[in-house]
Design a protein around this nucleic acid. Sequence first.
DNA 1: ATCCCGAGGG
DNA 2: CCCTCTGGAT
Length: 218
Amino acid sequence: MLNAKQTQTAIAIMGEIFPNAKTSLVADSPFHFLLAVILSAQTTDKAVNRLTPALFARYPQPIDLAQADEAEVRSLIKTIGLYRNKSKYLIACAQGLVTKFNGQVPQTRSELLQLAGVGQKTADVVLAECFQIPAIAVDTHVSRVAKRLAIVPKNANVLQIEHTLMKKLPQSSWIAAHHRMIFWGRYQCMARQPKCSTCPLLEICSAGKGLIKKGAAK
DNA sequence: ATCCCGAGGG
DNA sequence: CCCTCTGGAT
C-alpha cells in the first residue's frame, strides 16, 4: 500500500497534469446542484448537463419540484440511465427539502442523508462544492484509481476508501484531491484501456504493469 | 446481493 | 456487440 507521503505525491502529480480539475456539473444554485448530482449516478456529467437547463427552468425552487407531476419529470430526464428511479428521487428529495429544511439545502452530512436519493457520495459532493466543507466523495473513478494505485486494498468498500483517503491526505487537500482523482479516472486511468504506458505514475502503480502485460492498457 | 437504464465510446 | 458513466434503495 502507498503510505501517506506517497499518496500525497501521487495526488500532486495528478494536479500537475490536471491543474483545473473541478466539477463539470452545471447549476445555478445549491438546490439545482443537488439535483444534478442525484442525476449523475451511473451517468456521464455531459449527459446530465444536456438536460438540466430545461429541468431547472421548469422547477426553479424546491416547492415547484415538490408539487411536480412524476410523468413530466420523467419525460424531462428520460435521456439518462435509471430515469424512473431518479424521477421519484428528485420529487421526494424536493418534498424533503420543503418539509424538513424550509426549502434550503442543509449543510451537514447527516441532514443531507435524510433526503431521498442522497447517499454518502452525493452528500459529500454537495458539502464540498456548495459549502466548501472538506469531504472526499468516493465514486467509481475515485474507487478505481485508489485501488489501482494501492492507496487502499482492492476489496475496500466505499466507506473504507473515504476514511483511508482522509487519513492519508491533509484535510486542506481533500476537495482538490477528489477532483483530481475524478479527472485522473476520466482521462488517464480509465476503466477500460487506461493509458498506462505513458502514465507518470506507472512506477509507483500496483496495477499498471500488469494491465500492460495483459494487453488491457494502452 | 440485486435492481435500475439511456447514451456514448471502443 | 460490450462496457462504462461522479449510486442509491431494497
